[in-house]
Design a protein around this nucleic acid. Structure first.
Lengths: 256, 256
DNA sequence: CGGGTCGTTGATCACAATCAAACACCGTGG
DNA sequence: CCACGGTGTTTGATTGTGATCAACGACCCG
């Protein structure tokens, strides 16, 4: 029924080689959103695609990184690791999100493909120069970075103060909200969705262990907040109920 | 010996009214750092100062906020609060840090003066327009926002995965590093410093309770990692030792 | 001296981590 | 066809860290 994420990816970059920016699914949300005409044409000439299978590393913290990229399809994660192996996810990149930092040539985090991922890449040098000349690009990137900062701060509240149950409920709510946003709807009532992460990755995201994630999922199911279908499938019986369980809806609709 | 922070502040904005940007202590780190000549002159005409005493709120989450500002002196905090009162700090603003978001008229967080604070403010409308016309300003703000995002992600690792002891050690290390950076030195060996936060505020920063903060401070002292002098004074016996206690020095010198 | 704020210390509890085992589902190969 | 190993998930028993509840101490200022 549900194809595993790893089957969703393109096997090679070949089929993207010819894609036109005008047809790009993330055209109006990505860093290039405000570029038109000649600006877009320059980016179009610069861009190249790279694909990654689920589970593959994209870059390691500290590695030289000579490109920046937009996520076209799939989900990538950014993680920090302590010396003894404890791992915390610090970024969840969905389609249109930006990977890499202009002006920095070393990756600050591990980036990993959580599902199959297609990136639209630009070599860093040319992109940096383009940034200097193109206010549209710089402006859009600032906007996106400010949004990410807001998301990171919301995440800090979750990590620092929420219970395990609230963390799980919050995570599901975030996924539900994003899915609704893609369809330009407000989330409400009964919603079916597919989690983009394994239990393991959820644990790394939420600052929990995999066992606690599993237990709280079971508990939310037992209490009638969600239904569970297979490994990735979740249906919330009532969005408002889930928000209550998440310990407070502090995100006042900041996300675009 | 140590004056309480509340006595460090200026009693009114009057004495700042005449300050020239050329004499500003944060001239080369703030959002205006890359502006010169006419650009700076425009900002100079726009700016106005506001002071806050320790403990005073600057803005509340959801309030209309018709200015943006740089912290000139003192320390301000950004916090998120859940409905039931649980509170998490999500930003610690030191001199030269930027408060507010261009293009947004509602505060996303509570901002509070942790010590006496002086802000260099700009009305949001004119500042937004200035941003459009001044690539230097937009570029610098992007740079600062990216740095903040890095800091937020480091903080997420702390909140999600570090033990109470590691959190305390990390916090002290951050303060030591920042203090050293002001003096353009690398932190090393024995370092005396003054904590800019109360135990309460430290707890809110670190996602702990005040009791746990106190206990871990005592424990680090008992184990010879730090010495404690009064409420705010701390001396680390050896910076390298403190870093070990902090659970891993993942911040590879990203902070400017 | 009293009241206030801030910090420390102690006793107990609860939540999530840890250690351990079993289960569901998958594709593979005998 | 079914046994097999592998991966991801669930469930159980126990432990440990930090929260909670409570009292006390240090310091400051009126």
């Amino acid at each position: 029924m549900q194809a595993p994420p790893s089957t969703q990816i393109e096997p090679s970059t070949a089929m993207h080689g010819g894609m036109r920016c005008g047809d790009c699914p993330i055209r109006y949300r990505a860093v290039c959103a405000q570029c038109e005409g000649e600006e877009l044409a320059v980016l179009e000439r610069m861009k190249f695609y790279r694909s990654f299978e689920a589970g593959q590393p994209i870059v390691w913290e500290g590695d030289r990184m000579d490109f920046v990229a937009s996520v076209v399809t799939g989900v990538a994660t950014l993680t920090h690791v302590l010396e003894d192996g404890r791992t915390q996810m610090v970024g969840l990149l969905l389609p249109s999100d930006f990977l890499g930092r202009p002006g920095r040539d070393q990756a600050a985090y591990n980036a990993t493909a959580a599902t199959g991922v297609v990136l639209c890449c630009f070599r860093r040098g040319p992109f940096d120069q383009m940034m200097q000349r193109t206010p549209h690009l710089a402006h859009r990137l600032l906007e996106m970075t400010l949004d990410e900062l807001d998301a990171a701060r919301e995440w800090m509240l979750l990590l620092g103060r929420k219970t395990a149950r609230e963390k799980i409920a919050s995570f599901i709510a975030i996924i539900a909200r994003r899915q609704a946003a893609l369809q330009k709807r407000r989330p409400a009532g009964r919603i079916a969705l597919e989690l983009p992460l394994t239990r393991e990755a959820m644990a790394v995201y939420l600052g929990l262990t995999i066992e606690t994630v599993s237990r709280q999922m079971t508990a939310l199911h037992r209490d009638g907040v969600i239904e569970i279908a297979g490994k990735r499938g979740v249906t919330l019986t009532d969005y408002a109920r889930l928000i209550q369980e998440s310990g407070g809806y502090s995100d006042g609709g900041k996300a675009a």
